[in-house]
Design a protein around this nucleic acid. Sequence first.
DNA 1: CTTGACCTTACCATCATTGGAAGGTTTATA
DNA 2: TATAAACCTTCCAATGATGGTAAGGTCAAG
Lengths: 136, 136
Amino acid sequence: MNIGQASSASGVSAKMIRYYESIGLIRAPSRTESNYRVYGSDEVHVLRFVKRARTLGFSVEETATLLSLWQDKSRASAEVKDIATGHIAALETKINELQGMVNTLTHLAHCCGGDNRPDCPILDDLAGETISMKGH
Amino acid sequence: MNIGQASSASGVSAKMIRYYESIGLIRAPSRTESNYRVYGSDEVHVLRFVKRARTLGFSVEETATLLSLWQDKSRASAEVKDIATGHIAALETKINELQGMVNTLTHLAHCCGGDNRPDCPILDDLAGETISMKGH
DNA sequence: CTTGACCTTACCATCATTGGAAGGTTTATA
DNA sequence: TATAAACCTTCCAATGATGGTAAGGTCAAG
């Protein structure tokens, strides 16, 4: 199986497969005489694992750890759970940050006429002028 | 006022002030004889505006637009509101993505013993093995 | 034997920010 | 006054994950 087929089969772009190989996340596969990478179902399985982990927001580094734990048949699930719960906490922190931005902006947009007049509470806020929170 | 003081006064690092200048987000200030940048309260005000916009998650490009609207006394607030509401929508999309990850991971972590045994539903999921959703 | 679809490596770009190196200036202190 | 510390300057590089492109080699079908 060439890289293009491995890509289709795993959902990881050929570009990224080469990149993951270059940073050592996945092992370099064997090559044909003409230097083409050759993949089998094992490699595709690994690529799918990586794809899924990345989709769930794990960093490449975390993915590397999860991958090695996956391949270590004697690992304790506690270690995996720690990574997952740490990641959940990080995601929640990020969500809270974004939600804070949304709340502030929603309030500002709500106060803003959005008409043809130049008066704009959003810009006033950005400029550092305080906005009344009365009624909120 | 030197760049260090402008940095402290605005919360934007000296490094970023120079960067913002280099990409044309802010205007190049005058210089002393010895080539030091000189800032006044107007420039600091602009830097604070930029800082606040970035804190609210606006991209540098959006910030540039907001800045020019801010400095255009005759702009219509509708234009500003459009940018803000578009940004809110983008933030909410991102939040939903992250929340989806959290939900999936929370479910997996909940199913995972987190003990010394090697059996781990989290890794099973990453490996592509389906997990029962019974009871959820 | 040509064409087109594949593969290879090697760069460059993104986005916002930080870091460092190598050198010049100003200020405070010994 | 000498010198050291704390500034400032420009330039270059790295981050993380991915996309793009260019220049070239290979393979299969027509």
